[in-house]
């Protein structure tokens, strides 16, 4: 299946990856190539086959509903690219 430019643009927007026009065209060609290669999977009959979700190697466990960690605001903020006091900051969202 080939990929059109509008779809590529929509995907790039969904991924918040910020491609310029030239990069979009390159991505369209590359993804188109990969998708073409993946078409080999159409040969496989998957009728009635359950999807493999995770690897089922460990069953989910339950634990007591108690606090096991916390009070680490300084650690959590230590890598913030920008902050004011104990807050992460972002560009103004509401005028």
């Amino acid at each position: 299946m080939s990929l059109d430019l509008a779809t590529t643009r929509r995907i790039a927007k969904l991924a918040r990856i910020g491609l310029n026009d030239q990069e979009l065209e390159a991505a369209q060609a590359e993804l188109g190539g990969i998708l073409g290669w993946i078409e080999i999977l159409n040969e496989v009959d998957v009728e009635g086959v359950p999807p493999m979700v995770g690897t089922d190697m460990a069953s989910l466990r339950q634990r007591e509903d108690v606090v096991t960690d916390g009070d680490r605001a300084a650690d959590i903020l230590s890598n913030a690219p920008d902050r004011v006091g104990p807050f992460f900051t972002v560009p103004k969202v509401v005028e």
Binding site: A80, P81, V90, P91, V93
Partner: peptide, 23 residues
């Protein structure tokens, strides 16, 4: 996304900041 850790590349809006950072 440039908010909690890692490098941030500035942008005029939140969306633009995300896109610049990730690009």
């Amino acid at each position: 996304d440039g908010v909690r850790f890692g490098e941030r590349v500035a942008g005029k809006s939140l969306d633009e900041m995300y896109e610049n950072t990730r690009h």
